[in-house]
């Protein structure tokens, strides 16, 4: 067995384990962390395919940003596991059918002529071949219109997400930063001139009194 084959099986085993643990873990935070492990293993598999750009971007985007926000939300939620399990068995047939449908779809795609091993280009890449550069060149020449379209859709998504969650209340107070920055000392501080010592009230003290 070649060394890369060995690495493939190790990463594949970790990936399958992590994916299974993601859906079986009782604690949602554990599940999210197992999903992170699954992303890492998937990135390792892509590295084996010499797709280093995709592998690193998978970690950067999904592990570094998406899953962090996911964890952020999951940790804040107070999830009642008993309620989640409620009616598990009545939902199982529907869920199982959808799962089978997805397996069938993926089988159809993967057995098609474009994804078979023969259709993939040979592994031998010329000296100095840069995966990143090739991908960039393709994206900005041949596929520039789909790429721009996708970015516009993303932009629409961003704006829509902000608009949906933006609730302005009348009694919310915001700092006016420009005013805060423009503030002068005289508006905040008042210097008062006063004597360092207060003169003691004149007492009629009688020397040697008591």
């Amino acid at each position: 067995m070649e060394f890369t084959t060995f690495v493939f099986y190790v990463l594949g085993a970790i990936l399958l384990f992590a994916a299974l643990a993601t859906i079986t873990a009782r604690n949602p935070v554990h599940a999210a962390l197992f999903l992170v492990l699954a992303f890492f293993s998937a990135a390792g598999l892509w590295l084996l395919l010499q797709a280093e750009f995709l592998a690193i971007v998978l970690i950067m985007v999904y592990v570094g940003a998406v899953m962090v926000l996911f964890l952020f939300v999951v940790m804040m939620l107070d999830i009642d596991i008993a309620r989640l399990r409620h009616r598990f068995w009545s939902y199982l047939p529907l869920g199982g059918m959808i799962g089978l449908l997805m397996v069938a779809e993926m089988a159809l795609v993967l057995s098609g002529k474009y994804f078979s091993a023969e259709a993939l280009p040979g592994q031998a890449m010329p000296e100095g071949y840069s995966n990143t550069k090739e991908l960039g060149r393709l994206l900005f020449t041949e596929y520039v219109y789909p790429f721009e379209l996708a970015s516009v859709i993303l932009l629409v998504g961003i704006i829509a997400a902000i608009m949906l969650t933006l609730r302005s209340r009348k009694d919310t107070k915001y700092p006016r930063v420009s005013e805060q920055l423009a503030v002068r000392r005289d508006e905040r501080v008042r210097l008062v001139k006063m004597a360092a010592e207060k003169e003691a009230p004149a007492e009629e003290s009688q020397p040697g009194g008591q």
Binding site: E52, I56, I59, M60, V63, G64, A65, N131, T132
Partner: peptide, 18 residues
């Protein structure tokens, strides 16, 4: 000495938050 060094740096520094 990898070609995607800067990407690698961005990826690894972004997981430090975990």
């Amino acid at each position: 000495d990898i070609d995607a060094g800067m990407l690698f740096i961005l990826a690894t520094t972004s997981i430090g938050i975990y």
